[in-house]
Design a protein around this nucleic acid. Structure first.
Lengths: 192, 192
DNA sequence: GACAACATGTTAGAATTTGTTATAATGCCT
DNA sequence: AGGCATTATAACAAATTCTAACATGTTGTC
């Protein structure tokens, strides 16, 4: 049994019974009480429970996200720093979770799109998608893959690239990249 | 069997069981544990899972900012990638726009805070404020000043610092920094 | 067929986890 | 408050797991 397994089961028992006892847990999992102590210490610093003498009790879980409109491409929830909005000629506004989906949508909808806004990844403010600078395929996966992030300044994009890698592209080259990626790569789970 | 097949099956098993064990996977697919390690490394950098000792677990869903509520310190609107939540002993949940406000609130409220969550600046998922790594005063101003950003991995924080500068600190040193910064402006002192 | 790119296995050393022991701290009882 | 039993912490050694480096085999391209 893995430490992570044990941690999960401890949290389950905690939720079920409202309290867990160290002596009991050590027998259940056939490990020493010291190991349970260390498990509880870690879960406590991660904010999952509160240690009391001889065991642990639950703490309130973080507030759950309220239901929000989802990405019109992949149906995950858009976040302020990555989202894009596409304004169509018929007045409809489409919301995308990230530039990956937003730019794919842009290609898909073609002339129907009157204007497109991305969000600056650092600050979250809306920027024109045409004027934005994009970082494609950095070393961290964010939202959909291949990861595409938008920046209001080219210098911000280059700074991000300095730490996280990837290519700094304008919108035309980013669209070109996504087109090639869509043709070359086999479909992945969260690709759209 | 192709690596891509194995990756897909690993993800399926992960979704089904909530955890996968390296030893078990290596036997199932008749490959060495090193190969499974490499599979999990790749899936981790692609953002599909998180490695733990002996196996891997799914990625928690990102937290969402509800548009209405404002920061309890500065009353600006919190965004998903920067927000913090403080859970108080009386059950109240306080929401802050960014670690700058959240950590100031943490100092102010002291023992009343049962647990504190920050959001990973890159992905927006909730992380424990105690275990997070912070970048203080980078070359870009984001939300309140002095700018403080939270990261789930120290390596992410260091990568960000590589491009944008600033200091990489743990929570204790970040609080210390904020205290000193506050003293330069006003001469009020808070003990912890 | 030569070559590069990729996938896999093996090994040694580093890092993490675990149990044991000794010592400190806490709660409870009178 | 003092004494006792229980629980918590710290330090160490042993076991396990992780990582990096290299060697080997496989695939695809020219």
């Amino acid at each position: 049994m893995l430490p992570a397994d044990r941690h999960q089961q401890i949290l389950n028992r905690l939720q079920e019974h409202g309290i867990v006892h160290i002596h009991e847990l050590s027998q259940t999992f056939s490990v020493s009480e010291m190991t349970i102590h260390r498990d509880l210490d870690q879960l406590e610093t991660e904010g999952h429970l509160r240690k009391v003498r001889g065991g642990a009790v639950p703490i309130p879980a973080p507030a759950l996200a309220s239901p929000v409109e989802t990405c019109f491409m992949c149906h995950t929830a858009p976040r302020s720093q990555t989202q894009m909005t596409l304004h169509l000629s018929n007045g409809v506004v489409q919301r995308a979770c990230c530039p990956h989906c937003g730019l794919h949508g842009l290609m898909m909808l073609g002339d129907q799109v009157v204007s497109a806004f991305a969000s600056d990844f650092l600050r979250g403010n809306a920027i024109n998608a045409q004027a934005a600078t994009y970082v494609v395929e950095p070393a961290v996966a964010i939202c959909c893959t291949p990861t595409v992030l938008a920046f209001q300044n080219k210098s911000d994009a280059e700074r991000f690239q300095k730490g996280f890698g990837g290519q700094v592209l304008d919108i035309a080259r980013t669209l070109q990249f996504l087109n090639q990626a869509a043709h070359l790569k086999s479909h992945r789970k969260k690709e759209m």
